[in-house]
Design a protein around this nucleic acid. Sequence first.
DNA 1: TTGAAAGCGCTACCAA
DNA 2: TTGGTAGCGCTTTCAA
Lengths: 337, 337
Amino acid sequence: MKKADSNSGSTTVYEVARVAGVSVATVSRYLNGTARVSDDKRKVIESVIDKLNYKPNMLAQSLKMGSSRTIGVLTQSLVSDYFNEAMSGIDQTMKAAGYAPLIVSGHWHASDEAERIELLIARRVDGLVILTGKLTDEQILSFSERVPIIAFGRELSAKNAFGFCLDNYKAACEAVEYLVMQGHRAIAFIAGPDQADARARLAGYRDTLERHGIDVNPSLIVPGDFQELGGVLAVNQLLESGQRFSAIFAANDLTAYGARLALYRRNIRVPEDISIIGFDDLHSSMYTTPPLTTVRQPLLEVGQRIGEAMLKLIGGQKVRFEVPPLSLVVRESVRRI
Amino acid sequence: MKKADSNSGSTTVYEVARVAGVSVATVSRYLNGTARVSDDKRKVIESVIDKLNYKPNMLAQSLKMGSSRTIGVLTQSLVSDYFNEAMSGIDQTMKAAGYAPLIVSGHWHASDEAERIELLIARRVDGLVILTGKLTDEQILSFSERVPIIAFGRELSAKNAFGFCLDNYKAACEAVEYLVMQGHRAIAFIAGPDQADARARLAGYRDTLERHGIDVNPSLIVPGDFQELGGVLAVNQLLESGQRFSAIFAANDLTAYGARLALYRRNIRVPEDISIIGFDDLHSSMYTTPPLTTVRQPLLEVGQRIGEAMLKLIGGQKVRFEVPPLSLVVRESVRRI
DNA sequence: TTGAAAGCGCTACCAA
DNA sequence: TTGGTAGCGCTTTCAA
């Protein structure tokens, strides 16, 4: 009874119990439906809770229960449409299950990522989702001994961790295939950073060209950075090299936007003079001029799947699911020649 | 000593204390530097912490200290570049102060917002930032009795709450002024939703026109929704109305993107045939074709300011700051006629 | 400088 | 059905 008049800001179960003339245990039972509470007590508790505007302290609940109903999400950039679409999917399914996301950013920097993850673990998140990044699989596996992990952008399958990739290679093949079918032969590729997805897209480009008996011309492959700026620089380099090409496969949509602007600056029309195809299908790609033909990554769905997988992992179940497929979305930035 | 061998997953202070042969109090003191700890004890504690890989349980700390070192952020959309830039600024300054953000979305729906805020309060966030939204000032003030609040998108000044707006009206005036200076007289306006900022922009449009003795033509004002789709619909409506105009002032950049696409579809060139000016200066606006002339909202800075203000409010200090100014950024979507 | 112990707000066990 | 109480992991008096 000593705790009954706590001086801290919010009302506690003790207050409620005291005012209602019952024990804290009964209040707790009422709150959680753990056991039957007689009608009269229930009513009085209800009214007291209402009068005192009592809200349970989740911190205390978490400490007691050993579960914070919070999951950590490690993204790489808070301002990336790409990551945020997945985030949105994760949020949807986790919120429905009563979880809130603690979002931190690793900025594509392994040591930052590790540090942020430690923070998340210190906060006792019930699970952790890692959106790509620079950590090694070993590091992730090691973290997974302390918290269940779902990783996007790497294949992983352990007791307490699951990771998956979308089939970037296959989708890149499709994209290039499409270009070839439209009559393009001299196809430039603006690469991405040194990262698995980017490499898979490059490989798809190379292999598809070869499969069609088209020589891959090394000077048609230029570096990019998955950002718009890389796209403009790349096109400048391509143009200055004097190489001829009728189409550009950009490693992602952002790169395509930059490429498109560089072309615009030189009065080169898209798609009349040069065709462009992107990768990601960011929302904005529907509204570029011309609307961008690109590979769709179903990121919202990916996020939802991640959420479901997380829930399973937390519940101690085995995770296993169909990886959503990528698909080409044809808009207006590629011309048949 | 009874707690020494807790069975829960992680190591606790008790474990550390036992192995190190000291009391938990001493371990705690070492951890927080609350008091001097003798060199020998310090060393052994250090090594035990290391060996056991002990990490303090922040949940327990929070419960004890009455502070979760977490702030809640209520945004309206997890996938909005606009909100996320501010989010990024908030994250920067709060992270530096050891706070982590719990991000929830209200989807521009008052009852959702209220519900999410309750959730944040239940999780005992130390502060709350509200990015615009549909709540009334009264509601916010009422919430501020339970948690310190910084609000963006409304003027507010109370004991435990502070809110501010950017000067949308003035910036809209500048934008229209610029159009007029470039020789435009027939200027269409694509409005935003029923919301303070959108209204201020409309007012700026109206007043500036009048100030220049230009009649405001009601059929040149068409509705929009702050999204791309609203922009295309608006331009279609404008064009079909048969009204003549040489420039469009879009209530925000997204709207401008949509408008630009609608124009593209009809082979109307920008800026040769019609000029467009936007509002927000989203990152993408640098890469549209042509790059968009627009009003810059320094959202990253806004976020940082919010973070600083939050820290002050949490610290019980008075909040008061210069609201960062908006500014016109001239790119290539407006032509002099 | 150190340790014992109280208590943050809650849940759940054990008795009644 | 109910109440008393231990204890989640931590910090911080109070004494020594």
